[in-house]
Nucleic acid binder design. Structure first.
Length: 473
DNA sequence: GCATGATCATGC
DNA sequence: GCATGATCATGC
């Protein structure tokens, strides 16, 4: 009943039973002795603001402008812990220290807004510590990072969007550098030079100023008072952590469509199952589907096709496990109101210099692409120009058509070698495939074997050919 | 109407 | 900054 007592402590912040019930519930949702369980629970924060995450807990008693408030609210209201100023990690049994830190948006993407301040340096104690038993490592060996986007317009920390969450364990290589940093700081303190410490002394681990009101602190071997400092992870290092974490977040583990085999009805194959998900929406416009699935599709949304397909499949992530494993490529196809397909289907651009090196069709990059199974989500425009879902089908290229496509590949290589990058197989040259530009603009080029610049191009499957493969719509 | 070239929007 | 999926623009 330890937490019952704690709940009482928090009464100044949390003052209704509803909230207390939520708090207790939160604490039962994870195992606070297990880092993995803590991380799993913490991951639910991603994509939410703190306000949403704690579902409207009353916090009026708190001064939201206080520094460190984000972390405090997170600890008390989301995790239901109250570690205070302990020398132990916040989740003591799991050895996990909770660290939240703001990000800012720059042209290069998300970066750390500031260094990550860790535990205070006690100069007198530091003198006699070793790195392995240091107060720094004791508290900060395993971090749970909660990264949120700091936006100027947002008034309250409750409104910041949480972008990424994850456990952080330093690599052995990092630890070596951090150890050297730590020893350097310790050495200066031992020599009575604590007042000369500066952040420029070290690489990953810094001794940053912390607290301005508090007076100078005592240091060994010197009568001079030293400014109060804390260990910190430098901004550059924090940026590395952020990159790694955001990458983990995005690529992450692919998401499954079928969560359990129980979802299949008897005799149903995977193909049947996927297709059956789309059937209820046949005949509906994208707007109608969006409405049914409660998707916010405004008219400016350009990736509506993709969003709708994903929602029908019930996946949020970019990577769909089954499709990845099976090499399925999901593509949307939009027919004109007349039923005609205008647009050909593009593939990744090739580098002229790489393409000419390809030894055989079998090992070529484009053959691997053509060989995949395709999942076509087919729309037809109605007389109001709205896209109406007609059908969703799996398709793969028949062998005889691959042979045609091979000719295009072969001819393309021959022409590149003959320095004719501007004259590659046209749509009229072959019934199945052709080559055409695919670039940002005409300045977006690759170098040709002869050293010229030529706009980026790729193989395309002819619209007419694809249409012939779709069957009646 | 179609071939061909060009570029856009988005997300990584 | 660029790959990717998608779509637009132009001229014959």
């Amino acid at each position: 009943m330890g937490w019952a007592v704690m709940v009482v402590w928090e009464c100044e912040i949390i003052n209704n039973t509803d909230t207390i019930v939520k708090r207790i519930k939160a604490m039962l949702e994870y195992d606070k002795t297990d880092p993995v369980s803590i991380e799993k629970y913490a991951k639910k924060l991603v994509g939410q603001t703190l306000d949403e995450a704690i579902s409207g807990t009353i916090l009026s008693a708190m001064n939201k402008e206080d520094k460190g408030t984000f972390g405090h609210i997170l600890e008390t209201c989301y995790f239901g812990i109250n570690p205070g100023n302990s020398q132990n990690p916040d989740f003591k049994e799991a050895g996990v220290e909770l660290k939240s830190t703001p990000l800012k948006m720059t042209k290069k993407g998300l970066v750390s807004k500031e260094r990550l301040v860790m535990n205070m340096i006690d100069y007198m104690k530091l003198e006699n510590e070793t790195w392995e038993t240091s107060s720094f490592l004791k508290k900060n060996a395993l971090l749970l990072l909660v990264l949120y986007l700091h936006e100027k317009g947002r008034k309250s920390v409750l409104d910041y969007m949480i972008k990424a969450v994850g456990l952080w364990k330093y690599s052995a290589e990092d630890l070596k550098i951090m150890r050297d940093d730590w020893l350097k700081i310790q050495k200066m303190v031992k020599e009575g030079k604590a007042h000369e410490l500066s952040e420029g002394d070290t690489f990953y681990l810094g001794a940053c100023r912390k607290g301005h009101k508090e007076g100078p602190r005592k240091q060994p071997k010197s009568e001079i008072g030293a400014k109060q400092r804390a260990f910190s992870l430098k901004q550059r290092y924090v940026n590395e952590m952020i990159n790694a974490l955001l990458k983990r977040e995005q690529s992450g583990i692919p998401e499954k469509i079928v969560k359990s085999v129980k979802e299949y009805s008897s005799g149903q194959t995977f193909e049947d199952f996927i297709t059956s998900k789309f059937i209820p929406y046949y005949g509906m416009t994208q707007e109608e589907i969006a409405c049914l699935l409660a998707i916010d599709l405004n008219k400016e949304t350009k990736n509506a096709n993709d969003i709708i397909s994903r929602n029908i499949l019930g996946v949020k992530k970019k990577n769909i496990e089954e499709f990845e494993k099976a090499g399925v490529t999901m593509r949307s196809i939009v027919l004109e109101s007349t039923g005609k397909l205008i647009e050909s289907i593009s593939f990744p651009t090739f580098e002229y210099t790489e393409l000419v090196k390809e030894k055989s069709w079998e090992s070529s990059s484009i053959k691997a692409q053509y060989d995949k199974k395709f999942f076509f989500v087919i729309y037809k425009r109605n007389n109001k120009n709205e896209k109406v879902l007609k059908k969703a089908i799996f398709w793969n290229m028949p062998y005889k058509d691959l042979i045609e496509a091979k000719k295009v590949w072969k001819e393309t290589i021959l022409r590149i070698k003959a320095d004719k990058c501007d004259n590659l197989p046209k749509i009229t040259d072959n019934p199945v495939a052709h080559v055409r530009p695919h670039a940002q603009n005409k300045k977006d080029t690759f170098i040709t074997p002869s050293g010229k610049k030529c706009v980026k191009k790729c193989f395309w499957l002819n619209a007419k050919y694809i249409q012939s493969q779709l069957g009646p719509i």
